[in-house]
């Protein structure tokens, strides 16, 4: 780590340098201040991109692109929200763009089947075994797997609503669809998750 970069973590009186200060320095062109922001929030931004894309390479690439966009648009950041919230929204928009691009390129038949409930109807009903206690990490792994099995648009709506706490209206704007579609997608996504986790969900009850 460079001396400049380490100086940006702690101020002259030993206080932690705030994100706001680093953003201000970055606005003036201090790339080392921006690097410090990357150091602080890289994992969070990567994790959000991963939750949307479910692919390491795509998540790394899109999260890096989000940082680049953030640098380029730094003058547009008004500070209405925290820097990480603003950056997370940039990341989400890039992920949604990528998903739209992929959707255009690929046949959408699987997703249509998914939305009409076709896939779920074919899934076997999992039996509840009250004696099977799963470790929390195992439970999380199962949830992670289940989320990976959702279609891009179903997963996106879950991530935006559950993780980002976005309202139906905000999700509809971000995804370019109606509020009704958001509600329906959210329901089918949850229904699919419930189906996939019908064994695991008892662990949280």
């Amino acid at each position: 780590m460079s001396e400049i970069a380490s100086n940006l973590q702690i101020g002259p009186e030993g206080e932690a340098i705030s994100d706001d200060h680093l953003v201000e320095q970055s606005r003036k062109g201090a790339m080392e201040a921006f690097e410090e922001l990357v150091r602080r929030h890289r994992d969070k931004i990567y994790a959000r991109a991963f939750s949307m894309m479910r692919n390491e390479d795509s998540a790394v690439e899109l999260s890096q692109l989000a940082w680049i966009r953030a640098w380029q648009k730094l003058d547009q950041f008004k500070g209405d929200s925290s820097f990480t919230t603003w950056l997370t929204r940039i990341t989400i928009n890039l992920c949604l763009d990528e998903i739209r691009k992929r959707k255009r390129n690929a046949a959408d038949s699987i997703e249509e089947l998914d939305e009409s409930g076709g896939v779920e109807r074919k899934l076997p009903v999992m039996e509840f075994n009250p004696t099977a206690r799963m470790e929390r990490s195992e439970l999380r792994r199962k949830i992670d797997e289940a989320l990976s099995q959702l279609s891009d648009s179903h997963r996106s709506v879950i991530v935006l609503h559950e993780f980002e706490g976005m309202e139906y209206r905000e999700i509809a704007e971000a995804m370019g669809c109606s509020i009704g579609t958001v509600m329906s997608r959210l329901f089918y996504a949850r229904r699919r998750l419930a189906s996939l986790l019908s064994g695991a969900r008892n662990e949280l009850t």
Partner: peptide, 27 residues
Amino acid sequence: KTAALTLADDEVLRPCPESHDFYWAGI
């Protein structure tokens, strides 16, 4: 219940697989 389970996934620590230097170099 489904919402509670989904939220549990967001608690999963998922660090970036690239080192800081490599990741930053790309940016």
